[in-house]
């Protein structure tokens, strides 16, 4: 599949945009990458419990979409939610604590990697059932509409979710009721080990929107400014009652589907082609075309991020675990 985007003018130009805003996007991209790399190390080392689904290579989708949202907008996510969480403003510490099963984690240690979330920050705990977040997001948007609240939901899901009945049912109802949902399909070409061309006769996911009567768009998901621009347009349409919108963000998972997966099902030339389109390197190159951004600036961002993660890991390892009494709390309201 051709990874280039349909032409779309980025809402923010890298040359004329606000320097600190642009650097903030860079920091988020790097934060997600470094966070994931550290988590992978901790998991493989055996100090971190559970299982992991990571998003190295897909950072720009989370950052671009969440940068287009307001603090009181919501996102729904999946088993692969660390990047979404960081982009939506969850803290490194509450996430690391959660991954270490600590009671100080964002879900008190009850959720774990696949259910990362924090309602105060506008993120529903990750829904680890493929497609399960889609009707849920539509329902949240229905509440916004009925209560005349000016909020939107960005609903993240993968290419794999498009095959589930939940996609059809949720998207259709969002369409007929013009609900304020930005459906964000992170099309990374694979659902687990299965390549999309094996499970879709029409692999252009955004085409599906038209069949439900609303607007869909395919975007280069490894270009953070292109994603931001598309997400801003989509969110604005949703706020004006013109929703929903389906964004198909073309991207690629650089890491295993989960745990120790070695990705033997990904072709070597395909991997190389996508590694050459790395969202962070590309954005760094764009930023460096500005006269007021230097390599040293970017290095400083990375150093700051790594320092934050280092400190977070040390604290998370010593964070208090829940007591057994916590087992039976939080079941009913």
């Amino acid at each position: 599949m051709n990874p280039t985007s349909t032409p779309s003018t980025p809402a923010v130009s890298v040359l004329t945009g606000d320097r600190s805003f642009l650097l903030r996007l860079y920091e988020q991209l790097v934060l997600i990458r470094e966070f994931e790399e550290r988590v992978k190390f901790l998991f493989l080392e055996g100090t971190m419990p559970g299982t992991i689904h990571q998003c190295q290579g897909q950072e720009a989708t989370a950052v671009g979409v969440c940068a287009a949202l307001r603090a009181d907008d919501y996102i729904t996510s999946t088993f692969r939610g660390h990047g979404h969480a960081l982009a939506k403003g969850l803290g490194v510490q509450e996430m690391l604590d959660e991954l270490f099963g600590a009671v100080t984690g964002c879900c008190k240690g009850k959720g774990g990697s696949m259910h990362m979330g924090n309602m105060d920050k506008g993120m529903v705990p990750g829904i680890a059932i493929v497609g399960g977040g889609i009707p849920l997001a539509a329902g949240m948007a229905l509440a916004f509409k009925m209560q005349r609240r000016p909020q939107v939901v960005a609903c993240f899901f993968g290419d794999g979710a498009v095959a589930e009945g939940a996609f059809h049912e949720g998207v259709n109802m969002a369409a007929i009721w013009n609900l304020p949902v930005v459906f964000v399909c992170e099309n990374n070409l694979y659902g687990a080990s299965t390549r999309i061309d094996k499970v879709m006769k029409n692999p252009r996911v955004s085409d599906r929107a038209a069949s439900y009567g609303f607007r869909g768009e395919t975007v280069d998901g490894n270009d953070v400014l292109a994603v931001l621009g598309a997400a801003r347009r989509a969110a604005a349409e949703c706020r004006e009652g013109q929703g929903p919108v389906l964004l198909e963000l073309l991207t690629y998972r650089r890491t295993g589907h989960s745990r120790r997966d070695a990705c033997h099902y990904q072709a070597k030339d395909e991997r190389e082609a996508w590694f050459a389109r790395d969202p962070i390197e590309r954005y760094a190159a764009q930023l460096l075309t500005r006269s007021d951004v230097t390599l040293a600036d970017l290095a400083a961002v990375k150093a700051r991020v790594i320092q934050e993660i280092d400190a977070g890991v040390e604290r998370a390892k010593r964070a208090p675990q829940p007591t057994v009494a916590e087992l039976t709390t939080d079941v009913l309201a």
Partner: peptide
């Protein structure tokens, strides 16, 4: 098990 959803953290999962 207790009448609760399955918790993530190993301490609670082991209690579950």
């Amino acid at each position: 098990s207790a009448d609760v959803p399955v918790p993530f953290t190993p301490v609670l999962e082991n209690a579950y």
